[in-house]
């Protein structure tokens, strides 16, 4: 599902509410038929959230960043898995560089590589295409397409039209 809307129309607030950061003033958020407040942490195990902030550390390399963020999410990754994910995101031979020296677009790619190493069925992406070049936008369309065809769900906000091949996407316009 693609969420659209003018600046300040509440796209980020909506996504943060879905994640459970903010409690809705009215209504409720349900996951598998149960209010997310009643889910223990299992709800979070089934989702991957990528916000405006990349959640990567400048001092660590791309490889270390992905291993640490996987660790915080509760699982360990082999170096091979991480390198494969980074390669898919177009970061060959950048695995061991500190993220500090990478460009904005490359940092965003490191953050997006998190989607590839996890197995969460629900992706919640806030402006995933910020700072990405044309090639990476194409890659993102491909990745979301693959995820959906495997039975996953994705909710994302974007100002660019994103064509996901082979799957029907829903659009939600906030005003």
């Amino acid at each position: 599902m693609q969420v659209q809307g003018a600046n300040g129309s509440g796209k980020t607030t909506l996504l943060r509410t879905l994640c459970g950061f903010v409690r809705p003033v009215q209504g409720s958020v349900h996951w598998c038929g149960q209010d997310i407040g009643e889910w223990d942490d299992d709800f979070h195990a089934g989702m991957c959230y990528l916000g405006h902030l990349n959640a990567i550390k400048d001092e660590l390399s791309a490889l270390e960043n992905l291993q640490m963020s996987a660790g915080l999410a509760g699982y360990t990754l082999s170096e091979r898995q991480v390198v494969a994910a980074l390669r898919r995101m177009g970061l060959q031979r950048r695995e061991h560089l500190p993220v500090r020296v990478l460009s904005q677009g490359q940092r965003r790619r490191v953050a997006l590589a998190r989607l590839l190493v996890g197995d969460a069925p629900l992706w919640i992406l806030d402006e995933p295409l910020t700072a990405l070049d044309v090639g990476a936008v194409g890659l993102m369309q491909e990745l979301i397409g693959e995820h959906l065809s495997k039975g996953g769900m994705a909710i994302f906000t974007t100002h660019q039209p994103l064509q996901v091949a082979g799957v029907e996407t829903r659009q939600l316009t906030l005003s």
Partner: peptide
């Protein structure tokens, strides 16, 4: 907090107290 890692920690399936 500034780089968004804290958000990810809140979303971690484990208890935040341990982190």
């Amino acid at each position: 907090y500034a780089d968004g890692t804290l958000e990810q920690m809140m979303l971690a399936p484990q208890s935040l107290s341990v982190l």
